[in-house]
């Protein structure tokens, strides 16, 4: 189970959270599930880093949070992307793509 899991590159967790939240209001547990599902179990977010990240993003004003009822009928804290968060996501996405492309170019070089 732990063999093919990758650690997240520092700084990418924030971007992933923003991306997942951009799909619609979601609680912390939901975010960790979605990241795992979408990455086909490759990326697994530790709760120990998820919640501090969520609160940090909320504090920066990129996420907004409110209490609501979960699918299982419990009270959960739902996160929503703020307009500033959306802007931030766009910026991070494009810089990530540039970086990935650049790394790809280097790796593709024939030896």
């Amino acid at each position: 189970m732990s063999t093919d899991k990758s650690d997240l590159l520092q700084g990418t967790l924030d971007m992933l959270i923003l991306k997942v939240v951009a799909l619609g209001p979601v609680h912390g547990y939901g975010i960790s599930l979605r990241i795992r599902q979408i990455s086909k179990d490759v990326l697994q977010v530790q709760q120990g880093s998820l919640y501090p990240a969520l609160h940090r993003l909320e504090k920066r004003g990129w996420l907004a949070a409110e209490w609501g009822e979960s699918e299982t009928g419990r009270q959960a804290r739902f996160y929503r992307l703020s307009p500033r968060g959306r802007k931030q996501l766009t910026a991070e996405e494009s810089s990530w793509r540039r970086l990935a492309e650049a790394i790809g170019l280097v790796l593709d070089t024939a030896v």
Partner: peptide, 9 residues
């Protein structure tokens, strides 16, 4: 409350 929800789920 937020953490408890996660653990419960």
């Amino acid at each position: 409350a937020e953490l408890r929800f996660h653990i419960d789920e």
